[in-house]
């Protein structure tokens, strides 16, 4: 479960250089039940990525209370946040793959950080790479892959340890129609199996095809929930 109560976020300790309050998010209150699906919508610069950064525990809220997967992240210890991150899968806008590691090692990373046995890791990662159609490129380094291929590696890494929450930031931006379709099917399937999913996008076509409740942001404020 996710519950935000009057959450504010500032990147500049609350004050901009010109003196006005520097909140990029303010008064954000919403709830997403376990297993829920939400679109996160809004024009560029509205604060979608910032809200996702709060949900991925990349920043703590500057104001208010935020509960993610049952943990109050404005209070939790650093170690508790680290453990919580292992239950959250993230597909970043810019992939965030490790360039010096093979595709296999990139996808295996969450499992290794979680201390899974190597034998299980090998089987799981191989299956996942087959599933996203990258079995042949297991030993390749990410910089040698196309944008779409890198995105699929990022998706494989995000879902490899069956997270309780999946967050995606403009995940279809680098994909063609068919690939975008396939990704949406994957996210819907994960959601059907009980994973909460939040997808930020400004592609209205996608939202029309897959009807679901939406969080709408405008200039750092939530203007619609549902």
């Amino acid at each position: 479960m996710i519950r935000f109560h009057e959450v504010g976020l500032s990147y500049t300790d609350g004050v901009e250089s010109d003196g006005r309050a520097g909140l990029v998010l303010r008064d954000i209150s919403f709830t997403v039940p376990s297993g829920g699906f939400r679109w996160l919508l809004g024009p560029s610069g509205a604060g979608k990525t910032s809200l996702l950064r709060l949900l991925t525990l990349a920043v703590r809220p500057s104001q208010g209370e935020a509960v993610v997967l049952g943990q109050p992240i404005h209070l939790a210890s650093r170690h508790a946040l680290a453990l919580l991150r292992r239950r959250i899968g993230v597909v970043f806008q810019d992939f965030r793959l490790l360039g010096h590691l093979s595709v296999f090692d990139n996808v295996a990373l969450p499992l290794r950080l979680d201390g899974r046995p190597e034998g299980q890791i090998r089987a799981d990662v191989a299956e996942m790479l087959r599933w996203v159609g990258l079995a042949e490129r297991m030993a390749a380094l990410p910089p040698t892959l196309s944008g779409g291929e890198q995105q699929r590696v990022a998706i494989a890494r995000a879902v490899i340890n069956r997270p309780a929450l999946i967050l995606a930031d403009e995940p279809t931006g680098n994909l063609d129609e068919a690939q975008a379709e396939r990704l949406m099917q994957l996210l819907i399937e994960m959601n059907r199996l009980g994973t909460s999913v939040i997808v930020a996008t400004h592609q209205t076509g996608l939202v029309e095809r897959y009807a679901a409740p939406a969080l709408r942001l405008e200039r750092g404020r939530l203007v619609g929930d549902g």
Partner: peptide, 16 residues
């Protein structure tokens, strides 16, 4: 720095 942020984001603890 970049690799550290990625590993940290995937749930690596400070101790690790």
């Amino acid at each position: 720095r970049e690799a550290l942020e990625i590993i940290h984001g995937l749930g690596a603890s400070d101790a690790y």
